[in-house]
């Protein structure tokens, strides 16, 4: 069993063109390190469809593309490619034909510190999927694209990051990832990955709720969780009094319908039918 795990781990992560040997702290067990371009072709040929490659240099990414044809013919698309140094724009379409998922193609992509990145990428897939390894802030659309340890990317609006009670504002020009992917830093502002995923990913929310064995499943309990999650008080629902909201949350009255339900949903920024998924 242990042997099987080790093989899987080795297949999962390949570090390409590391100029310097990694320090002992940055060296992760079971990872294949290629220190020269000449090793890349051979390593890619041996890799499986589960392999995730981390290319440290643009020259290494080019070498990947030069060998892509042979690799594809050998065993189809490779799982993922993370480019620490952004690839040449004209190489991106070719790379996209070789890898199912990519991260780091945008020049302003921010990554976890290397030691933490390698650790997350070799973690069990279930665990890695709840951690962020890379991110890009797009000032034009005011969105943040965050890549998870399973290489899936989610996009969230800047508006998700409200000013904290201590008055700290998120600074999207200073995006960073820390705490092994558990925390997204926006300048001095820190957001938990868990909170972002809970709000942005219905599947994550469904799984989290499933684990709460003793959790209440009523409309009122969902309303309360969502209201708190959105940072709203009971007095923030316009013509609906705080007393009414409190009674709804305690399930003392029936689930609202029609205009009242729409009014509550609008204030919470979700669709009416979504409330009970929280």
């Amino acid at each position: 069993m242990a042997m099987r795990k080790a093989v899987r781990s080795q297949e999962r992560l390949v570090i390409l063109a590391l100029g310097q040997p990694p320090s002992s702290r940055a060296k992760v067990r079971g990872v294949v390190y290629c220190r020269a371009n000449s090793q890349i072709a051979e390593t890619l040929r041996r890799s499986s469809a589960l392999t995730c490659c981390v290319s440290m240099k643009q020259s290494a990414t080019d070498e990947v593309l030069r060998n892509a044809h042979a690799c594809q013919r050998h065993r189809g698309m490779t799982f993922g490619l993370i480019t620490i140094e952004p690839p040449r724009p004209s190489s991106v379409p070719g790379l996209a034909s070789c890898f199912r998922r990519m991260a780091g193609t945008a020049p302003n992509t921010k990554f976890l510190p290397m030691e933490e990145l390698f650790d997350v990428l070799t973690a069990p897939a279930k665990e890695a999927s709840n951690l962020f390894i890379a991110g890009v802030a797009d000032m034009e659309t005011r969105t943040l694209a965050l890549t998870r340890g399973n290489m899936q990317t989610i996009t969230v609006p800047f508006s998700m990051f409200r000013i904290s009670g201590t008055g700290v504002k998120p600074d999207f020009s200073r995006l960073a990832l820390t705490d092994y992917g558990h925390t997204v830093c926006l300048g001095k502002y820190e957001a938990s990955s868990d909170a972002i995923l809970y709000e942005a990913d219905p599947e994550f929310r469904r799984k989290a709720r499933k684990k709460l064995l003793a959790e209440e499943q009523t409309f009122g309990a969902s309303l309360r969780r969502l209201r708190i999650q959105k940072g709203l008080g009971r007095s923030d629902f316009g013509s609906l009094s705080p007393k009414t909201i409190a009674r709804l949350e305690r399930s003392e009255v029936e689930k609202p319908r029609g205009r009242t339900l729409r009014m509550i949903a609008d204030r919470l920024g979700v669709e009416p039918e979504e409330i009970e998924s929280f």
Binding site: E127, V168, D179, Y180, E190, A191, D194, A195, R224, Q229
Partner: peptide, 21 residues
């Protein structure tokens, strides 16, 4: 840590040990 944006319910602190929380 208590971060600026946490999953709010219920009030809590997060304890980290490298990748684990």
């Amino acid at each position: 840590k208590i971060r600026d944006r946490e999953r709010l319910e219920p009030p809590h602190v997060t304890i980290f040990l490298r990748r684990h929380e």
